[in-house]
């Protein structure tokens, strides 16, 4: 555990809590892509199957359980509790265009051809693109509430901090997880355009993000 990894995990947790509280307190999921949230729940489910097979640390176990519970709670809020506020007409990204290639790639390029390892690989690849329905939705509507942009900022920052963590781990312990690193770079690239808008617009005091 290094500072980049810890800050990355904290950033990830903050992102998920921000989104959950935004929906819970406002009793509305307006502007939020339910599809992206289902994909993230699928990411955690397929990645954390090792909860049943290997123990790494108390920290690791607790964080995994928290991420799983919060991701499913968020999906519950969007599709059941506050379903009437869900903007399904703007959430039109075709997720099969993500799921099919990602599933195919996870069978082709993995560390071990076992179910749990293929599912782990699937989760890494899927995570790198899971935010696309949300970004697509913002592009389509042309705007996002500032609280939604804070969520996206911390969610993007998390993987960027993991990149620093991987550089650190490579130099200090020779650790190199090619699948995670390549996917992490791809994932972070998807946020770059958003980061630019976030810094130039939201942090300068605009109440919401509107696309130029």
């Amino acid at each position: 555990m290094n500072v980049f990894r810890l800050l990355g995990d904290v950033s990830h947790l903050v992102a998920i809590i921000i989104l959950f509280l935004k929906i819970f307190r406002s009793k509305s999921c307006a502007g939020i892509s339910g599809k992206s949230q289902v994909l993230f729940a699928l990411v955690f489910t397929t990645r954390y199957l090792d909860l049943f097979t290997s123990f790494i640390s108390i920290y690791n176990t607790v964080m995994k359980v928290v991420f799983l519970v919060l991701s499913y709670a968020t999906v519950y809020l969007i599709y059941l509790r506050f379903r009437s506020s869900y903007d399904s007409e703007s959430d039109t990204f075709r997720v099969e265009f993500l799921l099919v290639p990602v599933a195919g790639l996870s069978f082709l390029e993995n560390y071990d051809f076992t179910p749990i390892e293929i599912l782990w690989t699937f989760s890494i690849y899927l995570e790198s693109v899971a935010i696309l329905p949300q970004l697509f939705m913002i592009t389509k509507t042309g705007e996002a509430e500032s609280i939604t942009t804070h969520y996206l900022f911390f969610l993007g920052l998390y993987r960027a901090l993991y990149l620093a963590n991987w550089v650190w781990r490579y130099h200090t312990e020779g650790f190199f997880d090619q699948i995670a690193v390549v996917s992490g770079v791809v994932q972070t690239i998807f946020y770059c355009d958003f980061f630019y808008l976030y810094v130039t617009k939201v942090l300068k005091g605009n109440s919401k993000l509107t696309l130029p």
């Binding site: 990894r5 995990d9 990830h12 990645r47 090792d50 290997s54 790494i56 690791n60 964080m63 995994k64 991420f67 560390y111 071990d112 076992t114 390892e117 782990w120 993991y162 963590n165 190199f176 997880d177 090619q178 995670a180």
Partner: peptide, 10 residues
């Protein structure tokens, strides 16, 4: 690397 590994990251 093609060895199965323990995934210690989240």
């Amino acid at each position: 690397t093609k060895e199965p590994m323990l995934h210690d990251e989240l």
